[in-house]
Design a binder for these strands. Structure first.
Lengths: 250, 250
DNA sequence: TGAATACGTTATGTATACAATAGCTGGAGC
DNA sequence: GCTCCAGCTATTGTATACATAACGTATTCA
């Protein structure tokens, strides 16, 4: 077939992986649904080999599940899975913060973190916060968490945190969106910012236990807010990963 | 070529993955070395497609690293990477123990754990412990940790712990071998067994914080012993994953 | 003599053809 | 009428051929 358009700027495997991930997170592919390779070939534009590579990678990422008899299906998650994933990431970030505090961090390394902190402070001065500012907050928050993770200087830990964040609802920015609809949104962000401030202070003063504790509390706050957001089911379309939640669960 | 022997009992992909992992852990492939697909095809007996799938999976497992210009190389680890990985797994197991304690576990579910405990007690009655008994200990210990992980009833956490254990030196049985050469071997095992006993007790009494703390201490003990074992470099051949340690490091 | 370029070789990335299996449907027998 | 078996179809697993890019080497020019 000469009709196949080939984009040579990125590898076919990466292209297929991105396209399939989009389909998964947008809900085009439903949880529990079996993924047809041939269908994926048509929708992604890549041939079967790179599509299969992409499927294997997505399985390792945790978005797909291998079917024993062959092929893959879209993984389904319960609300419990989601809150556990957030707490899991919080625990890992806690360890990262402790490593950073115990191993020592120079003032120069801490600078970008403090800039993030100041930028978020600036955003939160708006009451109530605008949609644009909230969007900026999400970006800055993700940046803060990524920088903090790096401070641990532990490649295995950084890798594991990245893997834990692969599940979209477990990423720092993935579920924050859903909170924006809550009446307590502003207050939640202010408390979160306080956590950020404490963890930096703890790292500066080499207080490992305190740094770890505050990051875990940070995650627990997120879990509580996620539950709240799931209760008043308003603006849940802001939580893209909701497409992956089992329809019939507790 | 008609000379290719095809074993149809397991998939070629799995066969290739196992064969390559063996080569990695046995040191046939050196850290930093580039992996040639064609060479892997020859040594594994599978064709290029399943070999490539196996390489992708091994990369996701953390044993290989993708080269930007294409292909894969054997990942190299520092001693710091190894001790961080053990502490990382201990942290996750601590969370699992806490989940188990907080969520409640029936006496029936705890039974297999207690059987493990008793079987290990029996082994440790030998002073000094025999090589065979030590080998049994390694198996039982791995079983104990696996069962404990299951008690968390948290699929995302179980999955993450499995991933953290993929690095051979981070698995419950992976590094224990190296300790057998230490003069304090017996004492170390007794202390570890005490940790096992405490975590079961804490789970039974629904003391989440205590359950978590003891598992983390358990991992910290393992880190200390690993360091000891690496200092007196006797019997290090018992640590198969040593093949993955960078030769020139701190 | 050294450096740069061009060409060739080798290895990876991609596509497709072929093989085998699992699931489904239809027919036949009890 | 229901169940079981057989054959077919559709989909995945595997193999290989082809394309392309990268690296190394050799030759030439400065």
């Amino acid at each position: 077939m000469a009709e196949r358009e080939v984009d040579r700027s990125v590898s076919q495997t990466v292209k297929a992986q991105l396209a399939l991930r989009d389909q998964l997170l947008s809900g085009t592919l439903r949880p529990g649904e079996r993924i047809s390779e041939l269908q994926a070939v048509e929708t992604t534009g890549a041939s079967r080999t790179p599509v299969r590579m992409a499927l294997v990678r997505l399985e390792e990422e945790g978005l797909l599940e291998a079917i024993p008899s062959g092929g893959f299906m879209v993984k389904a998650f319960s609300e419990r899975d989601i809150s556990d994933s957030i707490e899991l990431r919080g625990t890992l970030e806690g360890l990262a913060a402790r490593f950073a505090a115990e191993r020592g961090v120079s003032a120069r390394e801490l600078e970008p973190l403090k800039e993030c902190l100041a930028a978020i402070d600036e955003l939160l001065r708006q009451v109530p916060i605008s949609v644009d500012a909230f969007s900026s907050y999400v970006t800055l928050n993700a940046r803060f968490h990524a920088l903090l993770t790096e401070l641990s200087r532990s490649p295995p830990l950084i890798r594991q945190i990245d893997r834990a964040s692969a599940l979209p609802f477990a990423s720092p920015s993935g579920f924050v969106m859903a909170q924006s609809a809550l009446p307590e949104a502003q207050q939640i962000l202010v408390i979160g910012q306080e956590h950020h401030r404490v963890v930096i202070d703890a790292i500066e003063n080499r207080e490992g236990a305190r740094a770890e504790a505050v990051m875990r509390e940070h995650a627990r706050l997120a879990v509580r807010n996620l539950r709240l957001a799931l209760r008043n089911r308003t603006h849940l379309d802001l939580l893209p990963a909701l497409a992956l939640i089992k329809s019939a669960n507790d």
